[in-house]
């Protein structure tokens, strides 16, 4: 879900860019160097996952998964999404330089919301966890559509029809994302629970702390 270049007004573009920059700054500050490879490689995995198309009746929609991105990455989701959108602009011309900020905001704010809303519910009993997973997938796309709609609406009140269309057309996507999120979270809980928030990664899997610069200098 993204907005093309040339549509939005200056105030919307500028506030979007400012908020995205602030979010990215916080995300980067909280991202330690010993986590950076995790975030980078997971970010490419999410990029690839967003190219997957699933059928919805006669049409097909591509996955967005910003709910799971938020759950797994927390605040790092903001720079990860910024990077992914930059690459999308370069490879496919989805979005572009001037809308990078607002598009990051549209995807990353719901991801953050989902992180804080649902990370505590994943390890409750199965019915609660499944409901939380569905809500996570559904809500992330719903909030993104809502933000996209409001960006259009604040640009030009006459865009109301287009904005409503954007939210309405994404309803099936929200349901599909919800269902896929249920299965995906259940899968991760069985296979690699350390990826999800709320569980510490197993001891033998923990990466060693980053070497500090002095140590590196000694080695050479």
């Amino acid at each position: 879900m993204h907005i093309s270049e040339g549509v939005l007004s200056a105030p919307v573009l500028i506030s979007g860019a400012a908020l995205a920059a602030a979010g990215t700054a916080i995300g980067l500050k909280r991202l330690d160097y010993d986590r950076i490879a995790q975030v980078g490689v997971l970010s490419s995995a999410f990029f690839v996952a967003s190219l997957i198309h699933v059928n919805v009746g006669p049409a097909s929609v591509h996955l967005i998964l910003n709910g799971i991105v938020g759950l797994l990455l927390g605040w790092s989701a903001v720079p990860a999404i910024l990077v992914a959108l930059t690459l999308q602009a370069i490879f496919f011309q989805y979005g572009g330089i001037t809308v990078l900020g607002i598009n990051t905001l549209i995807m990353a704010l719901p991801a953050l919301a989902c992180h804080y809303l649902f990370r505590g519910l994943l390890w409750r009993r199965p019915s609660v966890a499944a409901t939380a997973s569905f809500a996570c997938g559904f809500l992330a796309v719903f909030l993104s559509a809502l933000l996209l709609g409001s960006a259009l609406y604040f640009t030009e009140k006459e865009f109301m029809a287009v904005a409503a269309l954007a939210v309405g057309a994404n309803l099936p996507v929200m349901v599909v994302e919800g269902v896929i999120t249920i299965f995906c979270i259940a899968f991760l809980k069985k296979v690699d629970p350390g990826l999800l928030p709320g569980k510490r990664p197993a001891e033998n899997r923990q990466a060693p702390p980053a070497p500090d610069r002095e140590e590196v200098a000694d080695a050479s």
Binding site: A37, V41, S44, A49, I52, L65, I180, C184, V191, A207
Partner: peptide, 26 residues
């Protein structure tokens, strides 16, 4: 069934990505 299959595909992709990231970081 299709949605579950795709969800597991994505899940497996994430698990492998994370395992790869650990090796990459080392």
């Amino acid at each position: 069934h299709s949605y579950r299959t795709f969800a597991y595909l994505v899940g497996m992709l994430l698990v492998r990505a994370s395992a790869r990231a650990r090796r990459v970081y080392l």
